[in-house]
């Protein structure tokens, strides 16, 4: 599996200049209060990982990967591990940036707020990618873009409608419970989703004809 992870990181590294410019741009926007710094995380990790799928598809890597020892399984596993590592690394970067911003502005560092916001973004980023990957394995990255757009659109509409229709004042006990155990419940849900997503992707990839 590490060989496949090295490949993904080597492909990302090949675009290091663009990645560096984007990081500097986001850092600048964050420092100057033009943008919430935590938004770097979902955007950058999705862009970086999708670019690896793009390279794979464009160069017909997946067919070759199927000829390598345990190639199909390791290929899928590597994408999930690489995703987790990238999201984690960008989270560290974002935390560092948030601390620098607080320090330069001489404001009191609100650790709970910083970690809470970045933690929430971390979870939602993993969630989005867990939804996307089986679709990419099923349709390929080119066709998956449309499918992902439709799915995200449907989820957004459904979520928006639910928020409008449901009166959360009836569920005060539930929301209190969730907010109390959020640090345990949400990471657990995300890990389960990630695992479920990996299993589905693996099933698709092992049966796929190239």
């Amino acid at each position: 599996m590490w060989g496949f992870i090295k490949k993904d990181f080597a492909m990302i590294k090949s675009n290091w200049l663009i990645v560096l410019i984007l990081f500097i741009l986001y850092a600048y926007l964050g420092l100057t209060d033009k943008m919430e710094i935590s938004f770097i995380l979902p955007f950058m990790s999705v862009v970086l990982m999708l670019s690896t799928f793009n390279y794979d598809e464009f160069n017909k890597w997946d067919a070759y990967a199927a000829t390598l020892p345990n190639g199909r399984k390791n290929g899928v596993r590597a994408k999930y591990v690489a995703t987790f590592l990238i999201v984690f690394l960008i989270s560290l970067f974002t935390i560092a940036m948030a601390l620098i911003i607080a320090y330069t502005k001489s404001t009191t560092i609100d650790y709970v707020n910083i970690f809470g916001l970045i933690g929430a973004t971390f979870i939602s980023t993993i969630l989005v990618q867990s939804l996307m990957y089986p679709i990419i394995y099923m349709f390929g990255i080119t066709k998956a873009r449309i499918a992902i757009f439709v799915i995200v659109f449907v989820i957004a509409i459904a979520g928006g409608m639910l928020l409008k229709l449901i009166d959360f004042s009836h569920f005060t006990k539930v929301t209190a419970f969730l907010s109390h155990y959020a640090l345990i419940i949400f990471p657990l849900i995300v890990l389960l989703l990630l695992y479920g997503s990996y299993k589905i992707s693996l099933k698709i990839a092992t049966k796929k004809n190239f």
Binding site: K6, K7, A10, M11, S14, N15, Y55, D56, F58, N59, K60, W61, A63, Y64, T67
Partner: peptide, 14 residues
Amino acid sequence: LDDMFFPEVLKAQD
């Protein structure tokens, strides 16, 4: 394989 398959942004050392 018949088609080229190495991602073209990689190097031989990669």
